[in-house]
Amino acid sequence: MRYQVRLKQSEEGYAVWCPGLPGCWSQGETEAEALENIKDAISAYLATVEELNKDTDARYVEVG
């Protein structure tokens, strides 16, 4: 899957977040490090959502 992310340079390095996943953000000293870190953050975010919803009646739909 591909997710759009946003980067912002700061005094500490780079902040990075995924607008499509509220609260999913990370950082890194370099742009490359921040982009690698957000991959881990997205994976953890999605795993947490899956865990929180595992006992609910849910359906999946294909988009695009």
Rank of each mutant, 00 (worst) to 15 (best):
R2H: 10
R2V: 10
R2Q: 14
R2A: 11
R2T: 14
Y3G: 07
Q4K: 14
Q4W: 09
Q4V: 09
Q4H: 08
V5K: 05
V5P: 03
R6W: 05
L7K: 02
Q9V: 03
S10F: 00
S10Y: 01
E12S: 07
G13R: 05
Y14G: 03
A15H: 10
V16Y: 04
V16F: 07
V16I: 15
W17K: 02
W17S: 09
C18M: 10
C18F: 10
P19L: 06
G20Q: 13
L21V: 12
L21H: 14
P22D: 13
P22V: 13
P22K: 14
G23R: 11
G23Y: 10
C24F: 01
C24W: 06
S26C: 01
Q27S: 04
G28P: 04
G28Q: 04
E29A: 08
E29K: 15
E29L: 15
T30Q: 07
T30W: 08
E33S: 05
E33R: 03
A34I: 00
A34P: 02
L35R: 00
E36F: 01
E36Y: 00
I38P: 00
I38F: 01
I38C: 00
K39N: 09
K39L: 02
A41V: 05
A41N: 00
I42R: 04
I42P: 05
S43C: 03
S43N: 06
A44S: 09
Y45E: 02
Y45L: 01
L46A: 06
A47Q: 12
A47T: 06
A47N: 10
V49P: 05
V49W: 08
E50A: 15
E51M: 12
E51V: 08
L52N: 15
L52G: 15
L52P: 04
N53D: 15
N53P: 07
K54Q: 11
K54V: 11
D55F: 07
T56R: 13
T56W: 08
D57T: 14
D57E: 14
A58C: 14
A58G: 06
Y60F: 12
Y60L: 07
E62K: 15
E62C: 03
G64M: 10
G64V: 11
